[in-house]
Computed example of a mutant assay.
Amino acid sequence: MTRIAIVTGGTRGIGKAISLALKDLGYTVAANYAGNDDKAKAFTEATGIATYKWDVGDHDATLAGVKQVEADLGPIDVVVNNAGITRDAVLHKMSFDDWNEVMRINLGGCFNMAKATFPGMRERKWGRIVNIGSINGQSGQYGQVNYAAAKSGIHGFTKALAQEGAKFGVTVNAIAPGYIDTDMVAAVPEAVLEKIVAKIPVGRLGQAKEIARAVAFLCAEDAGFVTGSTLSLNGGQHMY
């Protein structure tokens, strides 16, 4: 049986690596994106993975987007909630819009995607949901009260939904990446990046493919006894 997977934010960075890893393992993958149509088209042409555009923070758009994927590909077995944004600022300079937009997309997107797919997984007695959290949701980070709160919320969301899905064969897990060599991290000033790497015991940034391998494990047929867990992939930077 070919499993159908949706990866949100699945055309760039960590999401792209996840989409490709699942495809290589035989999943039929739909990659969600929110912005650049030209890049999404190029991604599909290069990988053969279908792309679907909607804002995961928009509840109605998410329901409609998932419905379209199911019409095109079939019932959704696997969801990877990877889509996320940053709007960094210290609290006294952070606008409500900066707070709300991060919460709406990063945490609200997980709720919206689960609402669209979890009932079907429950009925079919099989499903895998993997939510991408963050080291900063575990440890906190200066200038990121919105991002840290949203990512921390993802970890709690994961534990609660895992309890609802367990007896129906639906596992819900999270991955908390540390600093990964993506475009987002590449935008950090070199002097700041050097300080970040100096705090990582393994002495380097992580690679997107390392996150993708962990996602693939959690989505596997034989990973049914792993649920409600958060797997930290941060090079030893934060342990708890």
Rank of each mutant, 00 (worst) to 15 (best):
R3N: 09
I6K: 02
G10W: 03
T11K: 09
R12T: 15
R12W: 03
G13W: 04
G13P: 00
S19A: 15
L22P: 09
K23S: 12
G26K: 08
Y27A: 11
Y27E: 07
T28M: 13
Y33C: 13
G35W: 01
D37E: 14
A42I: 02
F43L: 07
F43Q: 12
F43M: 09
T44G: 07
E45C: 01
G48P: 08
T51F: 05
G65F: 08
G65P: 11
K67G: 11
V69I: 15
E70A: 14
L73N: 08
G74S: 11
D77Q: 08
A83D: 10
G84S: 05
T86F: 04
T86K: 02
R87E: 12
L91G: 02
H92A: 12
M94L: 15
M94I: 05
D97I: 06
N100K: 13
N100R: 14
R104C: 04
N106V: 06
L107A: 06
F111G: 12
N112Y: 08
A114H: 00
A114L: 13
G120H: 11
G120I: 09
M121Y: 04
R122M: 14
E123I: 09
R124F: 02
R124Q: 07
K125M: 13
W126R: 01
I129V: 14
G137A: 03
G140K: 09
Q141G: 04
Y142W: 12
Y142S: 11
Y147G: 01
A148K: 01
G156Q: 06
A162Y: 03
A162N: 03
V172K: 03
V172G: 06
A176I: 11
G178E: 02
Y179S: 05
T182N: 06
V185I: 15
V185S: 06
A186Y: 03
V188D: 03
E190G: 00
V192T: 14
L193N: 07
K195R: 15
I196V: 15
K199F: 00
K199M: 05
I200N: 05
G203C: 10
G203K: 06
R204I: 02
L205C: 06
K209N: 12
K209F: 07
E210G: 03
I211E: 03
A212W: 11
F217S: 03
C219P: 00
A220C: 06
D222P: 07
A223G: 09
T230L: 11
T230V: 15
L231Q: 07
S232T: 15
N234C: 10
Q237I: 00
Y240E: 11
